[in-house]
Nucleic acid binder design. Structure first.
Lengths: 351, 351
DNA sequence: CCAACTATTTGAAACATTTCAATCCTCGCG
DNA sequence: CGCGAGGATTGAAATGTTTCAAATAGTTGG
């Protein structure tokens, strides 16, 4: 039985074939590819012609085996569906593509196991570095990876206590800004739709909120009612309203991110609760659509593109293992963006 | 001078070291890793202990060099910042991670050159397949790659004419739905904020719109005023208003996607043009935030998660090169979601 | 106690590169 | 005419796996 069905089964061609075709040695072919300045003009032409004629494509894995480092870096996020990452990612991509590095996107889906699995694979691939928003609180495994020579930068997660580079926005400060804003508007009962407190950002924003309350001479225990959501999605944001004593309870809602706020707005509308009249709402992140929500959403802006860019930059220096570089932390400052959803007269135009 | 500064310079360890430590041959170590059922229990234990003790991590490139196929697939999008992709990506990721495949994310930024560059790198990496929303109209280079053995699936782009697998939503139909909706509300002058017509989706939506106009016995040339945006961002959506004769012109705006609509809504608000009273607006994609915009946005829903999932599924079968599989096209149907921004009484609740 | 198996283990080839010491030319110069 | 310099090219080692035929050890039946 002739195997008509597998016409393209022929062995993929290698530099050996090119060398034969051009009548040179493989060493020369390699030189043409990597150090053309060492090769005589006519030879160069001939070899390049052969490469084109045969349709030769270099084998990256083989190259890497000999050469060492991979040309891909890992980017691990907790949830690719989160618009926050969507806005951070371009900043990362821009910088990486300048260095001709491939971006391997991993989503831990908030699972420590899945994170560990991906990290293992990335290490096997010998990536020079990993950019990560860790799923769990413990980051000792990341420190260990770093020690084994893989560049490591925490994204949107302070790493002060550890020995890792980090790029973050000051979440405590953001929580303070939000809290102070709501308090200044006279709210004394604030519902906080938060994520799990093991997530650092969530814990920090809560801490900031408490700071603001105390700074106003009040007791956080009295003022703040926290509801913990299992996931930071619109759906959960909406569902969380069930667990708040809405009518007799808070007069303001602080949502740990805009995605949750989106759900809360929907839910409040369905329940006929007017925003900001019956309930002030604010989000966090100031994602692209926040300004255009109904009503436009007061939020805490984070410099997302910059964040991604800075993280990639830091990762590059970290994985180069430059001497003199130990661990470095870049902290951006958040900014309060006042819009309609908190009922204050906007301090700046809606966009 | 002792090199205190390079403590971790030691050669990365390989299976040879593990074999030596465990007192077996490398072949056995390989078997422990890949076919443990062939190895005797005590040996298995001993080798595994050595692996752990030494902290051995297999070298993926070497493995791949011998074995052939890579465990990463390429996903090429035109713009990672686009929320549409943010909602498609989870569908892709879900399916790929089930197969333990890594996702290499490439953004062509709508540049044919950058796309070509990435494709070249992906081919060098010997990826088994690529999921792509092509930047340009010509896809012959993709057909060629497919012929060379790389699985290829067009994402959100029909491939009927070509020999490629494709997963798409019927964009002509979507355009028709949108057009019919606006016409049924009495609009006779429609501004279409479109992307470049070389982008297939854009051209198709326009075609659908024209179909709807003709179906109503009208002349598209009279009814439709198209403005072409250089990029599908909120910024450009806003800027495009400048190029429309707003007051004396269209009474309705059809935006080629929700991101553009977002910008248009902002711009109209700033110009004091009421939506939907002075101008009806509709978007396309029905992204997560569309329902919560101000006013809530009428849009054309695409099954995004499904789209991604189906695309990944198709890619898996395509790169397996299963016999009997030639090229296949999956077309999902879009759905009109009526909300406030077009001023019709909503046919379904706002979410 | 030996033959015939079976279950393990081994050793070396193969994979596609890069790198580098060694060789080969070709000139220019004495 | 011979020699050295220096550019161009070569050939082979090295990289870390997998695979597989061959060797070895262990077991059972006669």
């Amino acid at each position: 039985m002739t195997d008509i069905h597998k016409p393209a089964e022929r062995r993929r061609l290698s530099m050996v074939d090119v060398a034969a075709h051009a009548g040179v040695s493989v060493g020369t072919v390699s030189n043409v590819l990597n150090r053309p300045e060492l090769v005589a003009k006519p030879t160069l032409r001939r070899v390049r012609a052969s490469i084109k004629a045969l349709g030769f494509v270099p084998n990256a894995p083989a190259r890497q085996l000999r050469g060492g480092a991979s040309r891909s870096v890992g980017v691990m996020v907790r949830d690719i569906g989160n618009p926050f990452f969507t806005e951070v990612l371009p900043g990362i991509e821009t910088r990486l593509s300048q260095e001709e590095l491939l971006l391997v996107l991993c989503s831990s889906s908030d699972s420590v196991e899945k994170e560990a699995y991906y990290l293992q694979i990335l290490e096997q691939h010998r990536v020079p570095g990993i950019l990560i928003t860790p799923a769990g609180d413990d980051i000792s495994h990341l420190v260990e990876l770093r020690r084994r020579g893989i560049g490591m930068v925490l994204l949107d997660r302070p790493g002060a206590d550890s020995q890792l580079c980090a790029v973050a926005v000051d979440n405590v400060r953001g929580g303070e800004l939000a809290g102070a804003h709501l308090l200044s508007l006279g709210h004394r009962r604030i519902g906080f739709l938060n994520g799990p407190s093991i997530v650092r950002q969530c814990a920090d924003r809560r801490k900031g909120l408490d700071n603001a309350v105390r700074a106003a001479g009040l007791d956080p225990g009295e003022v703040v009612t926290e509801v913990t959501l299992p996931a930071l999605t619109p759906r959960e944001g909406e569902a969380a309203l069930e667990r708040l004593p809405l009518r007799a309870g808070p007069t303001a809602l602080f949502c740990v991110n805009d995605t949750v706020a989106l759900g809360a707005l929907r839910g409040l509308e369905q329940r006929g609760i007017g925003v900001p009249h019956d309930m002030a709402v604010m989000g966090y992140d100031d994602v692209e659509f926040a300004a255009a929500l109904s009503p436009s959403l007061t939020s805490i802006r984070q410099p997302k593109h910059q964040l991604g860019h800075a993280a990639a930059e830091l990762l590059l220096t970290d994985s180069r293992g430059d001497a003199g570089h130990w661990h470095q932390e870049i902290v951006f400052q958040p900014e309060l963006i006042i819009r309609v959803s908190t009922g204050a007269s906007p301090s700046r135009p809606g966009r």
